[in-house]
Nucleic acid binder design. Sequence first.
DNA 1: ATGGTGGATGTTCCA
Length: 267
Amino acid sequence: MSLTLASWNINSLRLRLGLLPRLIEALAPDVLALQETKVPDALFPRLELEAFGFTAIAHRGMKGYNGVATLARRPFVVREGFPVFGGREDCRHLAVELATSIGPLLIHNFYVPAGGDIPDPEANPKFAHKLAFIEEVRAYFAAHPPKARTVVMGDLNIAPLPNDVWSHRQLLDVVSHTPVETEGLEAWRATGFVDAVRHFVPPEVKHFTWWSYRNRDWKVSDRGRRLDHIWVTPDLVPLLRRQVTLKEARDWERGSDHVPVAVTLDL
DNA sequence: ATGGTGGATGTTCCA
């Protein structure tokens, strides 16, 4: 028996509903965490997602921006009571608890603020908000260390390792790869998580999940970054069977600029 | 140094 967890920044759920069957065919996710759904809760396309086989659905959305949704083929309960990270309820976090053969699995779905263009919190409030968000999440997990059977996944909007970007040197002062961000993300992860994708892909190997729309030919220039992550608590590491980063999705017609990432656990 | 594209929105903001 296995459990596949997938994460995708879908960049508008309603616009890309028609791509989900391709994701499902390729990855067969038992749990799918979506970010940038860009749909208010009242307009959430629940029936369409149920038709794709997701019987458990939770979402936190707003008009035009942000938004997260977690879908599963088996029942879960939404876990409430977490802080509003970043001091603003702009629909960037959702936690659910899924019953599995090894016990309840707590699954966090995060959409970390992108942070704007200027990597200076004094000059750029969006960057300051991103840093504050990361620090608040780190402090929360430091004060409430993740117990066993916990997963963090989502668009964390930071590429932590040198080979998580196309050019470490050239991106050191580009938002998503500045030292203050990569150190902040590492401090969050170090509260009790293992990078499940890098468990399979050695750090010497370049590995990306996002390629900007602003390139004529994303595949030729290959100026990617690894912004999307799946982390697990150490007790789950022996159960990790594989990871799939669905690079082909970047070529889907009218696709997202992010591609889905998945890991499979042997349960 | 600059601008490049895409989505939601509404005559611009965000990524």
